[in-house]
């Protein structure tokens, strides 16, 4: 298999699992656009939260491919059907990820703390009533509660806990999610942010935001002192 991303005809499906669509493609396009940087970052552990059909984690494994040996992939989903479909999609492309049926990263948060170098998340971002959040199966892929932020706001601190010092988060957001406010929240946690892909469709306006730990902004003064003793490499 020499394809750069997962092939739609090889992506498995199930009535209760979100099929790859504009948001998935935008996220994979962002990873493709950032490929050179991803290779330079030399990730060891890459993780997808909410892997759905497996299109994104499979594509990430293919994008990094043989040029990035020594990468281990982990994917989670709360929907057991999604986990099964992801396994089939991975197998059809000859790549591997460890799969865990769990909510966000529950059960992984203590041992994986500070170890994830690349995290990709296409969260349930559609604004819904709060009581629709966390429904089983199909709805868990899109029901995002007020402003579509309920699940995103739970994921962000978990991502902050899991990301390594060099770690990056790629997050899909909708304009209705107020991406600039998300960036501001992450800024408070010490992250820089950049929109890697911006795409408007008939239905939604999508932003794929990349977050990274921005050490020179966290403690600018401290870092300034540190830089004089040449210890920038965190």
């Amino acid at each position: 298999m020499s394809s750069t991303t997962a092939q739609i005809r090889l992506v498995s499906s199930h009535p209760e699992v979100y099929e790859p669509c504009d948001d998935s493609f935008a996220l994979v396009d962002a990873l493709l656009a950032d490929r050179a940087h991803l290779l330079e970052q030399h990730p060891t552990l890459c993780m997808e939260v909410g892997c759905g059909s497996g299109y994104v984690i499979t594509s990430l494994a293919l994008i990094l491919g043989k040029e990035a040996p020594g990468v281990h992939y982990i994917a989670t989903d709360i929907n057991p059907h999604a986990i099964r479909v992801t396994r089939e999609t991975l197998e059809a492309h000859g790549v591997h990820a460890e799969l865990i049926n769990t909510n966000i990263a529950s059960g992984l948060d203590s041992r994986l703390k500070g170890l994830i170098d690349v995290m990709v998340v296409n969260p349930p971002y559609v604004p819904t009533r709060e009581d629709e959040v966390g429904a089983e199966g199909i709805a868990s892929s899109w029901a995002g509660g007020e402003n579509g932020r309920s699940v995103i706001d739970r994921i962000l601190p978990i991502a902050d806990n899991l990301l390594s010092e060099k770690g990056w988060l790629y997050l899909v957001t909708l304009t209705a999610n107020n991406p600039s406010e998300i960036c501001l929240e992450m800024r408070k946690k010490g992250y820089g942010a950049r929109i890697v892909v911006q795409r408007s469709t008939e239905e939604e306006s999508l932003h794929i935001i990349k977050f990274w730990r921005d050490f020179d902004s966290v403690d600018a003064k401290e870092m300034l002192t540190a830089s004089k003793s040449a210890s920038w490499s965190l």
């Binding site: 009535p15 909510n103 939604e204």
Partner: peptide
């Protein structure tokens, strides 16, 4: 399967991708 039952969880709700070939919106 690390999913917890109601009485075991502190605060657990969903994140996933269900759906079917249509954009989430």
């Amino acid at each position: 399967n690390m999913l917890l039952h109601e009485d075991e969880l502190f605060l657990q709700r969903g994140v996933s991708h269900g759906g079917g070939g249509t954009p989430k919106t």
